[in-house]
Write a protein that binds this DNA or RNA. Structure first.
Length: 428
RNA sequence: GCGGGCGUCGCCAAGUGGUUAAGGCAGCGGCUUGUGGCGCCGCUAUUCGGGGGUUCGAAUCCCCUCGCUCGCCCCA
């Protein structure tokens, strides 16, 4: 096809979809407001080094998925593949951390050069939360609860919260050695991909999808068993607090996040309705990132949820329960008044009237077709508007407009064309 | 980067070597030149993602290419 089209993995949001996104964003904003989070907006483009250092040179995201190029000043720039590094950079750059802990949220597009598939695009969108300067187990749970409650409020069904602790840096180092030596004695039972990872990134073997490897891992030592006393106590506290809030969770010792900066609490909220890309929301604690990016040692935790995946799950929920919260979110909106108008003087008067009604806060659809009244009424009906206002030649001449109820039975009323107050009263 | 599936009107879709390329939705016009929701009538693809080839003849077979899609990988 020679017709120009969007780049691969870059998706248009048509009006119907955009409406749903806005509904989700509105609910999210309200949750953030109640939780005392402030919005932050950072550039889409950053110096490449930010992500290389922040996310980790060895990660797939940095190694092969970034949109990186030289700008006209020969600087290496990268379209952000995630939000956390930018938020931390901005906080450091503007000295936010010296004003105490920061509770922030953001929303916007992220870019990763991957093969698109269900729930995965090259430009995708996240809503994320970052709490900088908080270290307690309680803060972990507060942040997780925020995500959980937001999703519940949206009416999403069938979610599972998976929880793990990656422990401290020392815990992970100790465990890595232990795991590697254990696996090395059983290399022959590992799939090829995992054998390669044994030397590059052994912890990632844990969430291999190879069934044989998974079976083997069932016998392997787990990270949780290797946690030092302090890390273990911390993890217990997180679980206890979650239970207190009656937020159900599953401990998953195989849950390993793909970005290097995570430690201690790590979690994912997954849906059974999403196919291979099941994670709707993922996050965890990153106590070492801020230092890594040149700031003071500052504990932090955050999460990000994938808008496209959330919308996918929301549509499932909406069709499963047509009267539920998800369905209400995805519903369209109709104008209050549809103005049927025809003939040059009438069309001018109708334009004036529509403008005045709009100024008074009424949603007005003004038919612009000059088509026969029958056609215009047909469209008026389809628009879902409860009222039609008719302005034609007769109405302009007499100065009396007609107001007709559409969705229900009722008499057509006559009102002075210039008496906006009377009209607004009838519209309720 | 590697595998599988698929590309016929804005959307859904029939057609699998010879048909005037069905049908539905949406759109437009009319029945109804000033009153909707229903109905009826008409119009809307010289062309089947693109390019080559086979054939008397191709949307239908072959090759290449582009795109979409699902999965691996990875992640939200």
């Amino acid at each position: 096809m020679s017709q120009l089209q969007s780049l691969r993995g870059m998706v248009d949001l048509l009006p119907e979809q955009t409406r749903r996104w806005q509904a989700v964003e509105t609910v999210a904003r309200e949750h953030f407001r109640r939780s005392g989070l402030a919005e932050i907006r950072t550039p889409l483009l950053e110096v490449t080094e930010l992500f290389a250092r922040g996310i980790g040179e060895g990660t797939d995201v940095v190694g092969k998925e970034m949109y990186t190029f030289l700008d006209r000043g020969e600087r290496s720039c990268t379209l952000r593949p995630e939000g956390t590094a930018s938020v931390v950079r901005a906080a450091l750059q503007h000295g936010l951390l010296s004003q105490g802990s920061q509770k922030l949220w953001y929303a916007g597009p992220m870019f990763r050069y991957e093969r698109p598939q269900a729930g995965r695009q090259r430009q995708f969108h996240q809503i994320g939360v970052e709490c900088l300067g908080v270290s307690s187990a309680r803060s972990d749970v507060e942040v997780i609860a925020l995500a959980w409650d937001l999703l519940a409020d949206l009416g999403v069904q069938g979610l599972e919260l998976q929880l793990n602790s990656l422990g401290s840096r020392e815990d992970r180092q100790r465990y890595r050695l232990e795991l590697v030596s254990w696996l090395e004695q059983r290399v022959d039972r590992l799939d090829a991909e995992s054998q390669k990872r044994l030397s590059t990134n052994p912890l990632r073997i844990l969430d291999s999808k190879n069934t044989q490897t998974q079976a083997l891992l069932g016998e392997a030592p787990t990270l949780l068993e290797t946690l030092c006393e302090e890390s273990a106590a911390r993890f217990s506290e997180v679980q206890a607090l979650l239970s207190q809030l009656a937020i159900p969770f599953t401990c998953n010792p195989r849950l390993v996040r793909g970005l290097d900066y995570y430690g201690h609490t790590a979690f994912e909220i997954t849906s059974e309705h999403l196919g291979a890309q099941a994670t709707v929301c993922g996050g965890g604690r990153y106590d070492e990132l801020i230092q890594e990016l040149g700031g003071p040692a500052t504990p932090a935790i955050g999460w990000a949820l994938g808008m496209e995946r959330l919308l996918l799950v929301l549509e499932v929920a909406a069709s499963a329960d047509p009267s539920g919260a998800a369905a209400r979110l995805t519903a369209g909106s109709s104008p209050t008044v549809y103005v049927v108008n025809r003939g040059a003087p009438a069309e001018a008067a109708a334009l004036q009237l529509a403008r005045a009604l709009r100024a008074a806060g009424v949603a007005v659809e003004l038919d612009g077709s000059s088509a026969a009244f029958g056609k215009q009424f047909k469209r008026a009906d389809r628009s879902g508007a409860p009222w039609a206002v008719v302005v034609g030649e007769d109405e302009v001449n007499s100065g009396i407009l007609r107001l007709k109820p559409l969705q229900r039975e009722g008499e057509e009323q006559r009102l002075p064309l210039l008496d906006l107050t009377a009209l607004l009263q009838r519209l309720g």
